[in-house]
Design a protein around this nucleic acid. Structure first.
Length: 308
DNA sequence: AAGCGATACAACCGCAGCCGC
DNA sequence: AGCGGCTGCGGTTGTATCGCT
């Protein structure tokens, strides 16, 4: 198809990195930062393509990498985040300091996915798998989850749109957009109901839009495709990804782990924060099952999750 | 001890988005 | 507006290690 290769592969080495190569790469990046990955190998005297160098650095050599087994808390977090974000490993990784997307991806594929399957949970939907008779068991309604996901998706979408509009300084062509509608709802008492829930008051009730979907039409409970939209969140979240480049390079040249996830890192972070702040007290029902974690003592011993 | 399958993890590949020209 | 280069991401593969027979 005429697609140009990422680099001239002639004479370039592939496969496992040697210690010598690692040292060269680390030394170069510590001195100069990674700069352009494409030109780095030549400058650093490596017979690798830039892509390979970047991968080696971000997944293995970065000084802040935390190696070793995942703690139960981390595993729980990965599952929670996966329930919301799906296979957005980089976004998930940004919530686990010192962990890389590759590592999390591997964890998921080798451990968590299998464990969920063993428990009869569909790892993609985080819902119970098909029953023997082929029926999808109806979720013992987890309204809080769905509300949260739906509200967040809609709200973020609206905020992103508004943000974009304000940036463009174009007079908002009347707030007729779906997103604006949701934003208004968010700010209305209905939205407040949801927010109250998050503050520990379990007062959520079926809202008029509880079964609505995003424009992607993929929000069914917790799905893997929430389509969390772009940045521009005004209030919530620390948004450390807002400036993903500068936020790290000032500190650590070449470190780009707080990835600039194309769309939505900053805003999804607030969503994530919401999720993480969600009333815990071992009631994990918002993940799609009533107290789904306490149902899996093998997987997550209770003692690990006392959110005192 | 050897063979073999399962598992874990590092690395590669290709696609898509962003950005500058 | 279109094109091409660069980068990051997610899926997949390759390989080393482990554990069982």
């Amino acid at each position: 198809m005429g697609r140009s290769p990422c680099c001239d592969k002639k004479g370039l080495k592939k496969g496992p990195w040697t210690q010598e190569e690692d040292e060269k790469l680390v030394e170069y990046i510590n001195k100069h930062g990674h700069g352009s990955w494409r030109s780095l190998p030549k400058l650093a005297g490596l017979l690798r393509c830039g892509k390979s160098c970047r991968l080696r650095w971000t997944n293995y050599l970065r000084p802040d990498i935390r190696r070793g087994p995942f703690s139960p808390e981390e595993e729980k977090l990965v599952i929670q985040l996966h329930a919301i974000l799906g296979n957005r490993w980089a976004t998930i990784a940004s919530q686990l300091p010192g962990r890389t997307d590759n590592e999390i991806k591997n964890l998921w594929n080798t451990h968590l996915k299998k464990r969920l399957l063993q428990m009869g949970i569909d790892p993609q939907t985080h819902q119970p798998s098909l029953t023997p008779n082929g029926l999808v068991p109806r979720l013992p309604s987890s309204p809080s989850t769905r509300h949260m996901a739906q509200w967040e998706s809609a709200r973020l979408e609206a905020e992103a749109r508004l943000s974009k509009e304000s940036l463009n300084l174009t007079p908002s062509s009347a707030d007729k957009s779906e997103g604006d509608y949701f934003l208004r709802l968010w700010n209305s008492e209905v939205g407040e109901t949801f927010r109250n829930y998050n503050q520990g008051e379990k007062v959520i009730s079926e809202s008029p839009i509880s079964s609505s979907s995003t424009k992607d039409g993929v929000l069914s409970g917790i799905t893997t495709e929430m389509g969390i939209p772009a940045s521009g969140l005004s209030s919530a979240g620390s948004n450390h990804n807002d400036d993903s480049k500068s936020c790290v390079e000032d500190v650590q040249p070449g470190y780009d782990s707080c990835s600039s996830d194309e769309m939505g890192d900053s805003s999804s972070e607030s969503a994530l924060q919401l999720l993480l702040d969600f009333p815990c007290n071992n009631d994990m029902s918002f993940l799609g099952q009533p107290d789904c974690f306490s149902s899996y003592p093998d997987m997550f011993p209770q003692s690990h999750f006392n959110c005192s």
